[in-house]
């Protein structure tokens, strides 16, 4: 039964109006900081907008998209980005989960472990890049010195194409793995205790508990953790910019740095916007897929 009020609205209607009123500032700022730049990028991507002629006089349709697709090194950059994202997420997930499980089981000094774990995450990525570039200096770095003490010959961490790729992956993992661990440990803390007690009664081993209880119950949290890291990993820019500039050769040429070069070195903001729009479609598709997967778990 609905009750009409003085202004002719139902109570539910007034609630909705009040709710809208409360969310309006948030929605409006979202509109300004997200939707506006997004459409501005799309608008730029179909114009011949360069830093030399920064105007929207020339509409070029899909020409910028076509040009981007024809670029010699773009497929390579996409492939390197895919490898980077997969490698960093898979390894971070495995390490992160292991750390989360041990933290969850820890009874003493928990806050000290958290502090140590969180330290890298609190460092600016530019500083992380500079730090590791110095530590990994092939001639003078402390890493090569240390492994030299136990008789391992020096490694060309950033100069060898195959090694350099794993160097930036590992740097990213060092920096970001605790993010994964923290999310997962929060998930573990929220798990109900009853299924474990019941399983114990039936004599299930720790490993069976993990596979048949922890993993299934954790799936929504895992999906969120992976989704967030996926989005961050695709956007990785700083450590590449500081440590390798995409080199040696094209070994670490991630897509975000590729797009940056098109805009700021190539001066072609139109083409860079086209590539950014393409990247957005890819990220949106991945997010939508993961989101639906998460919903299907409920």
């Amino acid at each position: 039964m609905s009750v009409a009020t003085a202004d002719g609205l139902t109570l539910a209607g007034r609630d909705r109006r009040f709710g809208l009123l409360l969310t309006a500032p948030g929605l409006l700022s979202l509109l300004i900081v997200i939707t506006f730049p997004l459409f501005f990028t799309l608008y730029t991507s179909v114009h011949d907008y360069t830093l030399l002629t920064p105007n929207y006089d020339t509409f070029v349709g899909t020409e910028n998209y076509q040009e981007a697709l024809d670029e010699e090194y773009l497929p390579g950059s996409l492939w390197v980005t895919t490898k980077f994202v997969l490698a960093s997420i898979v390894i971070e997930f495995i390490i992160g989960f292991a750390v989360a499980l041990s933290l969850h089981a820890t009874r003493r000094f928990g806050s000290i472990y958290y502090l140590i774990l969180l330290a890298p995450l609190l460092i600016n990525p530019v500083v992380v890049g500079l730090l590791w570039r110095m530590l990994l200096h092939s001639e003078l770095g402390i890493v090569n010195y240390t492994i030299g003490l136990v008789g391992i010959s020096p490694v060309s961490w950033l100069g060898d194409a195959d090694v350099a790729f794993w160097t930036v992956v590992l740097t990213d993992i060092w920096h970001q793995v605790s993010f994964m661990a923290i999310l997962l440990v929060a998930g573990l803390a929220a798990l109900p205790r009853e299924p474990y007690e019941a399983a114990r009664m039936d004599g299930a081993s720790t490993i069976r508990c993990f596979i048949h209880i922890t993993l299934p119950l954790m799936r929504p949290v895992i999906a969120v953790a992976i989704l967030l890291r996926l989005i961050f990993a695709i956007k990785t820019f700083d450590i590449i910019f500081i440590m390798t500039k995409g080199g040696p050769g094209t070994a670490t040429d991630l897509i975000s740095y590729y797009i940056y070069r098109a805009a700021f070195f190539g001066l072609d903001v139109g083409r860079a916007s086209a590539m950014a729009a393409g990247l957005l479609v890819i990220i949106l598709a991945l997010t939508a897929y993961l989101y639906r997967y998460m919903n299907s778990l409920k």
Partner: peptide, 21 residues
């Protein structure tokens, strides 16, 4: 030149020379 110098910029290279290497 040192192995890995294909990834040096002038600061890293400077240090190799400045260390007498």
């Amino acid at each position: 030149s040192p192995a890995g110098s294909e990834a040096y910029c002038f600061d890293e290279a400077f240090n190799v020379m400045a260390q007498g290497r």
